[in-house]
Structures are given as structure tokens and as C-alpha cells.
């Protein structure tokens, strides 16, 4: 059976280890990874294709609310579940961004039940491989291609590896059927990712 990959984004080691222990005790076949580093999050999503991403909404990241919103977009387009690890007060509109919420006072069986439910619905989600809609991240890449950035420049701006940039580009081409940079630039203009005036300056 395939291993379910789960990423835990949490700065407290106690919580990290506690969650890992609980999930490992459950009868899921899981691969767990913990981090609180933006770059590692993006790389993991790209390269490991997690089915669940647990994140503490107060995790110590720059613009964390924006990061969480971007993760929400990605979770929809790529097809993973986004779960909040909550032990402080959060507004409902933040919590509404998540598929599930795990509270500090949830007991072990409750946490396992929540994760179990998400794993059961997992197979239904990640089907949109050939769908024409781009993820937020892919749109970022299209916009930067349209602005004439090299793969290396894109990697630096988006805090992802060059390898990840290349894999985004492959997915974009598969989804849109457009290979050339100038073709993607026109796509970016049509979809208002850049201004029409930018075309021609860059290609």
C-alpha cells in the first residue's frame, strides 16, 4: 500500500513530536515530516505530494496569513487537505481556510479520527491532473516567465528550488498546451497576470 505523506508545520517541538507520536500510533501507513521553514514547505509540496498538511496558523513565517491563503489555493488546485493545529485564539475567517482543525485539548482518538476521515476522502481529491486551471503557484510562475525571468531568478523570488520551477513549467505546459515563453506571455496577458504593455519588452 502507498504511504500517505503528511507534512507538519509547527514551531514547538513538543507539539511536533506529540502529533507525530499520535499519528504513528494510528493504523495509517504514513510518512511524516516536520518543518517550520517556508522553503522546505514549498519543496515538500512540490516533490513529495503530501495528502495532508497540518499547520499552526501562528507559525513563525513572514506574512503567515498570506502564506496560509496561498496554501489554501494550492491545496485546492493540487489536491491535499489543509489542517490547522490550534492552541491560541483565531478568528473564524482564518479557521474557515482549513479543511479540519485539531485543537490542543483534542484527545488521541479524536485526532486519529479527524486524520482518518481526511485520508479516506483523499483519493477523491487529487484527480484534476489535466484540468486546465492553474494553481496559484503555477500562475506566479507564468507571470514571472512572462516578465522574462530565468528559472534561477524565479526560484529565488518564489523561495523554491530550480528543480521545482522546472516541474511547475512542465505542469503548466501540460495544462495549457503552450510551450514557448512568448506563448505563455500572451496567456498571462489574456488572464490579466501582466499588462499587455509588458509583452514585447521581455521576449
Amino acid at each position: 500500500m502507498r504511504k500517505h505523506k503528511i507534512l507538519i508545520v509547527e514551531h514547538s517541538e513538543i507539539i511536533q513530536n506529540g502529533l507525530c507520536a499520535i499519528i504513528k500510533a494510528a493504523p495509517f501507513n504514513c510518512d511524516l515530516k516536520c518543518t517550520d521553514n517556508q522553503r522546505e514547505i514549498n519543496d515538500y509540496i512540490r516533490n513529495q505530494h503530501p495528502v495532508i498538511l497540518l499547520i499552526n496558523p501562528s507559525v513563525n513565517l513572514d506574512n503567515r496569513i498570506e502564506v496560509i491563503k496561498a496554501l489554501r489555493q494550492e491545496s485546492i488546485s493540487i489536491g491535499f487537505k489543509l489542517v490547522a493545529i490550534v492552541y491560541a485564539y483565531f478568528d473564524d475567517h482564518i479557521l474557515a481556510l482549513f479543511d479540519e482543525v485539531i485543537y490542543i485539548n483534542d484527545d488521541m482518538s479524536k485526532i486519529i479520527a479527524k486524520i482518518g476521515r481526511l485520508l479516506e476522502t483523499e483519493s477523491v481529491i487529487s484527480e484534476d491532473e489535466t484540468g486546465a486551471t492553474l494553481s496559484q503557484r503555477e500562475m506566479d510562475v507564468v507571470r514571472l516567465i512572462a516578465l522574462g525571468r530565468s528559472n534561477r531568478e524565479m526560484a529565488e523570488e518564489l523561495f523554491i528550488s530550480i528543480h521545482t520551477v522546472i516541474s511547475h513549467r512542465k505542469n503548466i505546459t501540460t495544462k495549457l498546451g503552450i510551450k514557448s515563453a512568448s506563448g505563455l506571455t500572451i496567456y498571462a496577458v489574456i488572464n490579466k497576470l501582466i499588462n499587455a504593455d509588458d509583452y514585447g519588452k521581455t521576449v
Partner: peptide, 11 residues
């Protein structure tokens, strides 16, 4: 091919 795709699908 890109031109075809742009006209068929994207504009």
C-alpha cells in the same frame, strides 16, 4: 502549436 492552442482554447 502554441498559436493554435491560444486561438482554440485561451482567447
Amino acid at each position: 502549436d502554441d498559436l493554435k492552442q491560444l486561438l482554440i482554447k485561451h482567447f
